[in-house]
Design a protein around this nucleic acid. Structure first.
Length: 653
DNA sequence: CTAGCGTCA
DNA sequence: TATCTGACGCTAG
């Protein structure tokens, strides 16, 4: 505990840190658990940080990779275990101020000496440092630290394991099941003891931290094994140049808060609530009885057993598992001429979704007028990021129109449009700047397949919007008359076809017969022959190797690629093709994030901060005076990735 | 077609 | 009473 150190000892500690070859660290929570515990405690606040300082004199002979009976007791005793308290009850005491200052000194030195800091869930660690020492440091100062996260390493090796735990890693790399330090954290029984409580607490702490020392020692070795694995599998470069720098970016992103217009939020919630009530009444009238509009099973009963609407309509879609008549949007669309109810349900669903997810759902994420998403770097199999609380990547783009009843005489109803994204407001003197790759996956597909027709489309500057072009061709209308919905549909069709859609699904999506759909697929394949060649080649490679690889070497193993079961096998085939393209697009977007972050950190003047990543889109908050300079930098950086990755096709932002 | 997350029953 | 699953619907390509 650094608080117990004298002046000379403090000096020695800083000297030791300077000599260190690695740090292994974890946060300790109020309830005594650490970041290594499987059940991540969100309610418990951070109490302090424990650091195992690996000394220069260590590892004379690193344990061989094959040796599984490596004895943990042999861990170097010169390694120092230090505890830094980060939680302070009150700061007015001078002694505490001094402790906090020294703790910061230690951490600052750790972050800046370019020695790897190994931490399980490093993003949370960095974010906490930024929050605790927010007054002392700027976010740019975490930029040159070197963090290694075993969890991310494990995920790169097996991306299907979306939540690899510390225990599972130990099991994997040391085979025999391993019991986490069985520390009795239940100190309640001791609290009433008549003996010196203080002394007992001290003993418990000592025991806990000894245990932690063992676990950190294990974590260190797990990281070494993982590093070896990454190198063997060709994932090391991806890990070091892309995923590790991203940890810091996400940590910084999570410390930034976005302001929400709460008054507007409340107002729209009320408007939507009123509209829902109206729709509910209308539904009961036309259905001839009350039922729960949100329940698909009750709706199914009303539509198909009471009103028997499905018999009037051929071929209605059924649910996957139970083979019941579906109540999904496509079916409801087909039924809307037969009865007024489907239309009401469709609007009800739209309004309900808007209210529950984007308005009321957002409200639950707000703290003091601000929101800040939690970003998951290991949450997908394709390498994309995911976000939650709120899922800022999933917030509706399109506005919904509501007819609001006005109780003012002379004006009966008023149409209001509600678009959730306008509820976010930038800081005063700042603006939001969004930069997105245009048709990123399609461009990557063009490059990977070397399809001449597709390449031509992107290399010729007159093509501004592929999907609008496709839509105008498909619908036979001039490109100026292509509506947003048409473009959106064209986009879905193109992706559906290139990723191997069946004729039935495509027919549903287009509102045509399966025969027409299969003809469409056929003509598409005829026009873009090389795309089909690419998918065949990808599947073939996957069959041989058992995995597929993105342009930056990201891997996805697909065990079902050689399955007997037709359904499983063809699904794996589509996943293989999709991974190569989606994964490569994810690589590019992450590269853009890293490069832009680095540029801003280097710049003495730029202050722009990344707010969100919506897959192909980066959203920044930029000082108004810097918008021109920064937007040019962003565009330049993103488009220059064509050269960095030696793409045949230009990238457009 | 492929990835996700949130809501509801 | 609490947790899990399936269906649905929004996002991204």
């Amino acid at each position: 505990d650094i608080r117990s150190l004298g002046c000379e000892e403090k000096r020695e500690l800083l000297a030791t840190i300077e000599q260190a070859v690695a740090f292994v660290t974890t946060m300790i929570f109020q309830d005594g658990s650490s970041q290594l515990s499987s059940e991540q405690v969100l309610t418990s606040s951070v109490k302090g940080v424990v650091v195992l300082v690996k000394n220069q004199t260590d590892h004379p002979c690193p344990p061989s990779y094959s040796s599984i009976d490596y004895t943990w007791n042999a861990a170097n005793e010169n390694d120092k275990l230090i505890y830094l308290k980060t939680e302070w009850s009150s700061l007015w005491e001078q002694e505490q101020q001094a402790h906090k200052k020294f703790a910061w000194q230690v951490l600052f030195q750790m972050l800046h000496c370019k020695v790897p800091i190994i931490c399980f869930n490093a993003k949370d660690f960095l974010r906490t440092l930024l929050q605790v020492y927010g007054n002392e440091i700027s976010w740019k100062q975490v930029a040159d630290s070197v963090v290694l996260d075993p969890r991310i390493a494990a995920w790169l090796i097996n991306p299907s394991d979306t939540v690899p735990s510390f225990e599972s890693l130990i099991q994997k790399y040391f085979e025999k099941p391993f019991s986490m330090g069985t520390v009795n954290t239940d100190t309640g029984t001791l609290r009433n003891a008549s003996v010196s409580t203080l002394k007992l607490f001290f003993l418990i702490y000592l025991y806990q931290y000894q245990n932690l020392r063992v676990n950190l020692e294990k974590l260190y070795n797990v990281m070494r094994y993982l590093a070896r694995d990454l190198q063997v599998q060709g994932l090391w470069k991806l890990f070091c140049t892309l995923e590790l720098p991203l940890i810091k970016i996400l940590a910084v992103m999570e410390t930034h808060k976005i302001h929400v217009n709460t008054q507007e939020l409340k107002k729209t919630s009320d408007i939507l609530g009123l509209r829902l009530k109206e729709l509910e009444q209308e539904a009961y009238q036309v259905a001839g009885g009350q039922f729960l509009l949100t329940s698909s099973s009750q709706l199914r009963e009303v539509l198909f057993e009471k009103l028997k609407l499905h018999v009037l309509c051929e071929k209605v879609h059924r649910t996957e598992i139970q083979q019941l008549v579906s109540t999904s949007e496509v079916v409801l669309n087909k039924l809307q001429d037969l009865h007024p109810l489907p239309k009401i349900i469709l609007e009800y669903r739209q309004v309900h979704k808007m209210k529950s997810t984007y308005v009321d759902g957002l409200q639950t994420c707000i703290r003091k007028g601000f929101i800040s998403s939690t970003w998951n770097q290991t949450g997908t199999v394709t390498g994309r990021l995911s976000a939650k609380q709120p899922n800022i990547q999933g917030i509706s783009k399109h506005p919904v129109r509501i007819t609001k009843k006005q109780y003012i005489k002379g004006k009966e109803a008023e149409i209001v449009t509600i678009s959730p994204r306008t509820l976010f407001v930038s800081k005063k003197g700042y603006s939001f700047l969004a930069a997105d790759f245009s048709h990123i996956e399609l461009r990557i597909l063009a490059d990977l397949s070397s399809e001449p027709e597709l390449l031509k489309l992107f290399q010729e500057p007159e093509t501004t919007d592929i999907f609008s072009t496709v839509a105008s061709q498909w619908k036979g209308i001039p490109s100026e008359e292509v509506k947003h919905a048409d473009r959106e549909q064209a986009k879905r069709i193109v992706y559906s076809v290139v990723y191997g859609a069946g004729k039935e699904r495509l027919a549903d999506s287009l509102g045509i017969t399966p025969l027409q759909a299969s003809q469409f697929i056929e003509s598409f394949m005829q026009k873009y022959k090389k795309v089909h060649e690419f998918t065949k080649k990808t599947i073939e490679q996957c069959r041989n190797k058992g995995y597929v690889v993105s342009i930056m070497g990201r891997k996805r193993p697909l065990v079902n690629i050689n399955a007997q079961d037709y359904k499983l096998r063809t699904q794996a085939e589509r996943q293989a093709v999709n991974f190569v393209v989606q994964g490569s697009a994810a690589d590019l977007c992450k590269m853009a994030m890293v490069e832009i972050f680095t540029s801003v950190v280097i710049s003495p003047t730029l202050t722009a901060r990344l707010i969100a990543q919506i897959h192909d889109e980066l959203l920044f908050e930029v000082e108004d005076s810097q918008i021109l300079e920064f937007s040019a930098l962003v565009k330049r950086t993103m488009e220059s990735l064509q050269q960095t990755t030696a793409l045949e096709v230009p990238l457009k932002v």
